[in-house]
Amino acid sequence: MTYENILSKTENSINYITINRPNKLNALNKATIQELHEAFKAADSDKAVKVIIVTGSGEKAFVAGADISEFADFDVENGGKLAAKGQELLFDFVENLGTPVIAAVNGFALGGGLELAMACHFRVASDNARMGLPEVSLGVIPGYGGTQRLPQLVGKGRAMEMVMTAGMIDAQTAHGYGLVNHVTSQEEMIPLAEKIAGKIMRNSSVAIKGAIKAVNANYQDGINGFDVEISEFGNCFGTADFKEGTTAFLEKRQADFPGE
């Protein structure tokens, strides 16, 4: 499929999704959010894809925020619909994807950009990355899950400070906060993400999907995460991956998971 605002390619079982609006610092507009939804959905449904890496084009920005020109004249109703639709199409969608998603954060990840990175399953960052939620400086609050995911990752106090000051933190501070898993040079960022993806791909994709569902359940209102874990654990016993994994272990060989 051809996209106008993003690039998508698959190599060696890794799908690379690149937000490609460098003249706008890869800002998210409605069209880009829609295309990202379609690309993530296509990658998740492709059995050949084991890991997704999402990044921004160029060296300046992962995503420098939302395209403010699209909503500057919105009223209360339209503002609410904007947040609801965006969360449904992209941010919640990515968080609950069964295929592992790694955000490779290069440069600025602000507003919707940081919210996209936080929706991914984990994050690696280049040493020039800068992250923040500046929405209150525009008279709004983060609307794509930022007020929920940031406290989960860095704690309530740090999240409150970041949101209320509208300030940015550098990559090393983000690493210290637990907001990103790894920091490396810009040149080594994608290779590092690929190295981690390689480790992931040696394991059962079916079990990983169940693990993602179980971990996410802990953060969902009205859901008992332990019950979900028990259910997903039990489901594993009916998979070909479980049979192969246990057989390979007993035979002292590397497992060759069928992904079923």
Rank of each mutant, 00 (worst) to 15 (best):
N23K: 15
V76R: 12
G107A: 14
P191C: 06
P151N: 09
L116K: 04
Q172P: 04
K41N: 15
A207M: 15
P142H: 12
V101K: 03
S231H: 07
V54T: 12
F71T: 11
R253E: 06
K156S: 08
L153Y: 11
F62S: 01
E251P: 11
N224F: 08
G58T: 06
S57Q: 14
P151A: 09
S126W: 01
E194V: 12
H121Y: 06
E35I: 10
C236A: 09
G80A: 04
A72Q: 09
A193Q: 06
G225A: 03
M201P: 05
F226E: 11
D75I: 10
T32G: 01
S126M: 02
T2L: 08
V183D: 05
P134L: 03
S126A: 12
E115C: 02
M160A: 03
F91A: 03
E115K: 00
K47L: 08
K30Y: 10
N15I: 02
A207G: 11
G167W: 05
Q148T: 12
E88V: 13
S137H: 12
G178T: 12
Q87S: 12
A129F: 00
A211E: 02
C120M: 10
N181D: 06
I230C: 08
K50R: 10
G111N: 09
K41F: 13
D127K: 13
M131P: 01
E135Y: 09
V180F: 11
E135M: 10
M164I: 06
K41W: 02
A109C: 06
A159C: 06
I52N: 00
F91I: 01
L250F: 13
Q220L: 13
N26M: 11
F93I: 02
R158E: 14
G79K: 08
A48C: 05
G79H: 06
F62L: 06
R123P: 05
E115N: 08
A103M: 13
A129Y: 00
D75T: 13
A214T: 15
G56P: 01
G146S: 05
G86W: 01
V51Y: 04
F122V: 07
A42N: 13
Y219M: 11
A103E: 00
G111R: 04
E115Y: 03
M162S: 00
E232R: 15
N216E: 07
V163Y: 03
G139K: 12
K156H: 10
K30W: 08
A197W: 06
Q172I: 08
Q220T: 15
G113M: 01
G176L: 11
A125R: 13
A48K: 13
A119V: 03
A240F: 09
G155Y: 06
K60M: 10
Q152Y: 05
A72F: 07
F249T: 13
A211Q: 08
L82F: 13
G98T: 14
Q186A: 15
L36A: 01
A72V: 07
K199I: 07
N218G: 01
